[in-house]
């Protein structure tokens, strides 16, 4: 009874939050609603007995993904008024097409039949035999579907390579600390007697003379070494 009540409460809040994610005008609010939706989804999973998934959802999605979203949203300056422009123009025909699709999908959903053993399966998320939730998930991910898991790893790797390839730039002007070069530098620091009372306008800025000519080049070379990723 209490389980059912909790389910309906969490489910209602989840859907409401999801709706707000899409409709709220302020993107920061959207992200916050998203976090709320995540929490509620995690609660639903707890009710279903999938405690590991629930925790993962909270840690990964709320702790990492949603916060990242928040960063991004705050950094980007999205002009929603302009985004809606096209929306207005395509509304009539888009609405018709969307409606047709919706009707068709409704027709399809209307033919839904539930398997007889569905309710039992739903309430028994673990394979039984004392196997824990975590272990069952591991079994599926790392044994049954290790092939897909590895491919997913490759997909992520590719995404990373892609992000680096497309955005990483080696700007010519940037200066980096090169410890080796600093240590190797010797005898270049020396005390010098400067006449007192003379303004900088007369003396100019005095810079130490560089001991070796190819010095800047060497710095750049070293930079090449370290800064690939």
């Amino acid at each position: 009874m209490i389980t059912a009540a909790a389910f309906y409460i969490f489910a209602f809040v989840l859907i409401a939050a999801a709706t707000m994610v899409v409709t709220s005008r302020n993107p920061v609010h959207s992200v916050l609603f998203l976090i709320l939706a995540f929490f509620n989804a995690a609660a639903l999973m707890l009710i279903a007995g999938a405690e590991f998934l629930a925790m993962i959802l909270v840690i990964v999605y709320v702790g990492a993904v949603a916060v990242l979203f928040l960063f991004v949203v705050m950094m980007l300056d999205i002009d929603f008024a302009r985004l809606r422009e096209g929306f207005q123009r395509y509304l009539p025909i888009g609405g018709v097409v969307g409606l047709i699709l919706l009707l068709e999908l409704a027709l399809v959903i209307g033919t839904w039949t539930t398997a007889t053993e569905a309710s039992d399966l739903r309430l028994a998320p673990n394979p039984g035999g004392g196997v824990s939730n975590t272990k069952a998930l591991g079994q599926i991910l790392y044994t049954d579907y290790v092939y897909l898991f590895q491919i997913a790893g490759l997909v992520l790797l590719v995404a990373m390579i892609g992000a680096i390839v497309l955005t990483h730039r080696r700007r010519p002007g940037t200066k980096r600390q090169d410890v080796a070069a600093q240590i190797a530098r010797s005898g270049s620091v020396n005390l010098e007697q400067v006449p007192t009372g003379v303004g900088i306008g007369e003396l100019g800025i005095r810079r130490p003379t560089l001991p070796e000519a190819p010095k800047p080049k060497q710095v750049e070379h070293a930079d090449h070494h370290g800064g690939h990723h």
Partner: peptide, 13 residues
């Protein structure tokens, strides 16, 4: 994208 969706709707129909 719109063309794709229209095509999809035609196909589904």
């Amino acid at each position: 994208a719109f063309t794709m969706i229209i095509g999809l709707v035609i196909f589904v129909s």
